[in-house]
Amino acid sequence: ESETFDVELTKNVQGLGITIAGYIGDKKLEPSGIFVKSITKSSAVEHDGRIQIGDQIIAVDGTNLQGFTNQQAVEVLRHTGQTVLLTLMRRG
């Protein structure tokens, strides 16, 4: 069981404050995608409180990250504006 949710964030001096990890899993058993690996102290993400380590980032400002490499996803996140809309999925 999984839930998908949107989080809109405004960057602070730390930026968004997440590091991400790309993961290619076994299609049947484990998900592939871009996941939140860590959250920086005092960052926008930590202050917001809704995003957790292990959440999958589905889209950034409407750009679907399906099939993106870790590096491609980093580039998408790097080129966002001051306000960012993240679409995430959390597995229950």
Rank of each mutant, 00 (worst) to 15 (best):
E46T: 06
T40S: 13
T4E: 07
Q71G: 10
L88Y: 01
T4K: 10
D48Q: 07
T63E: 12
H47F: 10
G17M: 03
H47P: 07
S43D: 05
F68P: 05
Q71F: 07
S38F: 05
Q14F: 12
L86W: 00
Q82I: 06
H79Y: 06
H79T: 15
G25H: 14
N12T: 14
Q66F: 09
I39P: 01
T83L: 04
V7K: 00
K41Y: 04
L85G: 09
A21R: 13
G67R: 07
K27M: 08
N64T: 11
D55V: 02
E3P: 08
Q14L: 10
E75Q: 11
K37F: 03
V60Y: 01
K11V: 05
K11A: 08
V36Q: 03
T80L: 00
L77S: 01
A59Y: 02
G62T: 03
A44R: 07
G67M: 05
A73L: 03
F5I: 07
N70E: 15
V84P: 02
G62C: 05
A59V: 02
L16F: 07
G54D: 07
I18L: 11
R50Q: 07
N12I: 03
L88M: 14
V13H: 15
D61E: 00
L77K: 01
G17I: 00
F68L: 11
S43Q: 06
I53S: 06
L88I: 14
T63V: 13
T87F: 00
Q56T: 04
H47K: 12
L85R: 15
A44F: 08
M89F: 11
T87D: 00
G62S: 05
L29S: 14
T19R: 11
L85W: 10
I34K: 03
K11H: 06
V76G: 02
H79C: 13
K37W: 02
Q56V: 05
Q72W: 02
G67F: 05
T10L: 05
Q71P: 08
K28W: 11
K27N: 12
V76R: 13
E46I: 08
G15Y: 03
D55A: 03
F35Y: 15
E46F: 12
D26T: 11
S2T: 12
E3V: 13
A21M: 11
I20Y: 10
G67T: 08
G22C: 14
D26S: 11
N70A: 14
V76F: 12
D61S: 02
G54P: 03
Q52S: 08
F35I: 13
Q14N: 15
